[in-house]
Every structure is written in structure tokens, then in C-alpha cells.
Simulated assay, not measured.
Amino acid sequence: MDVTVIGISAVAVEIYRYFLRHRDEGVGSARRALGVDADTVEAAVEELERLSLLDLTDRHRVVATEPRIGIERLIERRLNELNSEIRRVLAARDAIAVFMEDRQQGERSSTALDIERVEGLERVRQRIDDLGFFSYKETLCLHPGGPLSRTAIETALPLDTRSLRRGLSVKAVYNPRAIEDPLMLAYLRDLRSLGGEVRITEESIDRMIVFDRSVAVVPIHPQESARGALLVREPGLVSQLVAYFDGVWEAATDIREYTEPSKEPPLLSDLERRVLAVMATADKDEIAAREIEVSVRTYRRYVADLMARLGAVNRFQAALRAKEENWI
């Protein structure tokens, strides 16, 4: 039984029931019988009087209102309150037309493209960090210049690691001058070992970063990147920039092939080829081992050996690299 919905507290319920059972009793008798302190009883009987459930004309002979009258009256009052609230809520729909008119007026008056200008190298780096943090799908980068500074590399690697561990795809294209620096080359190899994709192009490219194919960051001035950047969100412009990136990416060469030209594929046994084939498709080692008809221990030993030879950090990456190296 829950009558709090009609405004009666739990303590008041017990006192009301007491006076229904004990007609013509006084307030003091309720306090003694129920073991409730005087202040609590006083507050409850005042509440019941306010709700017209008790008549306190004579506090020594309290009269409880007949439930079918008192409770029904409270229910009716509460229903009226709820109906009034419902009408008020439904009336809020009238605001939709007003808000829509405001929106349409804004669309009619807005002629500027969705391009944000960010000046200063430090502010640009902060905005790029923010965009990378909130990305959920991929990052596309074009780097036309030479190597990054040691400080820039030390800042970039943790950010790249964070993105890759969150499952983002990272694709970057660099100019050959960038990998003339041993520190930069080591950074790019680390990036690749973490799951990033790095390619090299000798063609002239423009500096650019694209996040989730929805926001592009380009320099304010192509030859002076330190001046600042433009954050482009216009779908048509971003689409063109992504198409430009895709063209550069397809024509570029994987960094591993560029720095270590591909040799003839290694001689693999039939079993090694079968292990490579199931590594990226089987969910569990037991299933893969059963599929190629070897023990689980043997399968795991072959997997560990192949991953080491491919320089892969996980099985899926090993399978991808095996395809890139024409092992399978």
C-alpha cells in the first residue's frame, strides 16, 4: 500500500490508522501507543488535519475522517493536478513552430562556410590533439616536409599509441627527406609496429590531417605552417581533400618496402602457409588447429615463430604483413 502518491507520509499513515482503530482517543495516546516522539506526532497530525483526514477540534477526542471520503478526495485532487501538468506539458509542443522558425531564419542568414581559422602553432597543436582524442574511426596525414624535431616526436608517439590502442586506423604519407633522420625513421617504424600504416612518396604533396573523414586541418599558408591552420568541416570540401589523400596514398610506397626493398618471398612449408591462412580468420586456437589438423601446441608454436619473422605484434597484423610481403 503506497499512499505517498496522494501526499500522505508514512508516519502520518500509521497515525491515521491508529485513530481509525481507536475512536475518540487523544493525541497523547497515539504518541504513547506508537512509541513516536512528540514532535513527530505533532507534525503528522497537523499534516493529517491539513489533508482533512483528522478533525482536531478537540485534541483529546480526535476524529478520523471516513476513508471512502477522505482518501477519495485526495485521489481526485491528485488526478486534477496530474491532468493539469499533462496539459502544460502538451502545450510545450506549441514552442516547436517558434523554434523551427528561428532555425530556418538562421539557415537563411548563414552564408559563411564551416571553416575555422586557428592562429599560432601552439593553439593548432592543441586543437589537433583535441580532434585526435575525440576521433573514433581514422586519421589521415600528409607530411610534405623533413623530419620532425625530437620534441615533436616525443609528443606525437604517445598520442599515436593512444589512438591505435583505441582501435583507430592511422595512415600517414611522408616525404623521403623525413626518413633521412635516424630518429624519425625509428619513430615511423615504431608507429608501424603498433599497427599504423606509413607510406613514402617522392611526389610533391600538401600538408594535411583529416579526422574521421569529417574534419580536415590544412595550413593557412602552404609554405608557412607555423602561422596557423584552417579547420574545415564543410562536407564538400572535406570530401575533395579525402579524395586527394586517397590518390596520394594509392601511389605511395610502404615504408618497409621503400627502406628495405622487397626480396623474394621466403620459402615456407605447406604447414606454415596453412597456419598463415587461418591466423586472421579463426577465432580460437583450438578451431584453427583442428582446421589444419595439428595439435593446439604445434599451432601456437608455428604462430609464435611466424609473428617473430614478420615483426608483428598480434596475429591479425601478422596475417596482413604476410599478404603485403607476398608470403601468402
Score class of each variant (00 low, 15 high):
residue 45 V to W: 01
residue 26 G to R: 03
residue 101 E to W: 03
residue 278 V to I: 10
residue 9 S to I: 06
residue 207 R to K: 09
residue 82 L to Q: 11
residue 146 G to V: 07
residue 171 K to M: 11
residue 305 D to C: 05
residue 327 W to R: 03
residue 319 A to N: 00
residue 49 E to F: 03
residue 213 R to A: 13
residue 214 S to Q: 13
residue 169 S to Y: 08
residue 280 A to V: 04
residue 25 E to P: 01
residue 92 A to D: 14
residue 71 I to G: 02
residue 277 A to P: 00
residue 195 G to H: 03
residue 262 S to T: 14
residue 36 V to D: 02
residue 75 I to A: 13
residue 133 F to G: 09
residue 182 P to I: 04
residue 281 T to H: 07
residue 174 Y to S: 04
residue 294 V to Y: 00
residue 188 L to V: 03
residue 308 A to Q: 15
residue 98 V to I: 14
residue 232 V to M: 02
residue 231 L to P: 00
residue 139 T to H: 06
residue 321 R to D: 06
residue 244 Y to M: 12
residue 214 S to P: 00
residue 47 E to K: 00
residue 268 L to A: 02
residue 290 R to T: 10
residue 280 A to G: 15
residue 79 L to N: 09
residue 308 A to D: 14
residue 11 V to R: 06
residue 34 L to Q: 03
residue 159 L to V: 11
residue 110 S to T: 13
residue 176 P to D: 09
residue 278 V to A: 04
residue 93 R to A: 12
residue 123 R to N: 15
residue 257 E to D: 13
residue 245 F to P: 00
residue 120 G to K: 05
residue 306 L to A: 02
residue 238 V to I: 03
residue 2 D to N: 15
residue 139 T to D: 07
residue 313 V to C: 10
residue 129 D to P: 05
residue 283 D to W: 07
residue 126 Q to T: 10
residue 317 Q to V: 11
residue 275 V to F: 00
residue 43 A to S: 13
residue 154 E to H: 08
residue 152 A to L: 05
residue 297 R to A: 13
residue 153 I to P: 01
residue 163 S to K: 10
residue 23 R to D: 05
residue 183 L to G: 06
residue 187 Y to H: 15
residue 236 G to Q: 14
residue 134 F to H: 12
residue 264 E to M: 13
residue 122 E to M: 10
residue 5 V to F: 14
residue 207 R to G: 08
residue 110 S to W: 11
residue 309 R to S: 08
residue 315 R to L: 01
residue 5 V to W: 15
residue 82 L to P: 02
residue 193 S to T: 13
residue 109 S to Q: 14
residue 136 Y to M: 12
residue 98 V to Y: 09
residue 260 E to M: 09
residue 18 Y to T: 00
